[in-house]
Amino acid sequence: MRRFGNQREAGRRYVLRPGAYAILMRGRDFLITHQAAPFNEFQLPGGGIDPGESAIVALHREVLEETGWKIAQPRRLGAYRRFSYMPEYDLWAEKICHIFTARPARRISTPLEPDHDAIWTDAATAQRLLCNAGDRHFLRRYLRSC
């Protein structure tokens, strides 16, 4: 599996953290999230897969929490690995990021997660804003397939 970002640091203990993330397109715009804390960054909507939860169930839950949108027709694009520190959990994580495309079906609320905003933006701006190389890679790959 392809890795993006930092390499695994020798001697550091990493916790395996699988997650599900979505590329959401409406017209020519993409829905991304801005997370103000603990870091100020733009990301694909999504997050951790809870123990016993499927990637699809996690994807629906996380997109709703981070954007306030319900989604439909998820389709898996692939996955990548990254190693990072997660200050909100005070742990070093080996993140396995499962990337999906889905259709934003209906906005039912504002984001439920604190410090999150849902942002609609064009493809070029999304690629510039997304904070991690894996998210940018999958967005470019998706755009080439359209």
Results as ranks from 00 to 15, higher is better:
M1E: 02
M1D: 04
M1A: 08
R2A: 13
F4H: 14
G5R: 05
Q7H: 09
R8G: 01
R8V: 04
E9W: 10
A10Y: 02
G11D: 03
R13N: 13
R13H: 13
Y14C: 03
Y14K: 02
L16Q: 10
G19F: 02
A20R: 07
A22Q: 01
L24Q: 03
M25W: 04
R26Y: 01
R28T: 07
R28M: 02
F30S: 07
F30I: 09
I32Q: 10
I32G: 05
T33F: 03
T33R: 03
H34T: 05
H34Y: 15
A36W: 12
A37M: 12
P38K: 08
F39T: 13
N40R: 14
E41Q: 14
Q43R: 13
P45R: 06
G46V: 01
G47L: 04
G48R: 14
P51N: 05
P51G: 06
E53C: 04
S54T: 15
A55Y: 01
A58Q: 10
L59S: 06
L59G: 07
H60A: 15
R61I: 00
R61D: 00
E62F: 01
E66S: 10
T67A: 06
G68F: 05
W69Q: 10
W69I: 05
I71V: 12
P74M: 06
P74S: 07
R75E: 12
R75W: 04
R76I: 06
R76A: 14
L77C: 05
A79G: 14
Y80T: 12
R81H: 04
R82E: 15
R82T: 14
S84H: 13
S84K: 15
S84F: 10
Y85N: 08
E88F: 08
Y89M: 12
L91K: 04
W92C: 09
A93K: 03
I99D: 11
T101L: 00
T101W: 00
A102F: 09
P104N: 10
P104E: 10
P104W: 07
A105E: 12
A105C: 07
I108S: 11
I108R: 12
I108T: 15
S109F: 03
S109G: 15
T110W: 04
L112K: 14
L112A: 11
P114Y: 01
D115W: 07
D115I: 00
A118K: 03
A118T: 06
W120S: 09
W120N: 04
W120G: 08
W120V: 05
W120K: 06
T121N: 10
D122A: 12
D122F: 02
D122C: 09
D122M: 08
A123Y: 09
T125I: 09
Q127W: 05
R128V: 06
L129W: 15
L129R: 15
N132H: 13
G134H: 00
G134I: 00
H137S: 00
R140P: 00
L143W: 09
R144A: 13
R144I: 01
S145F: 08
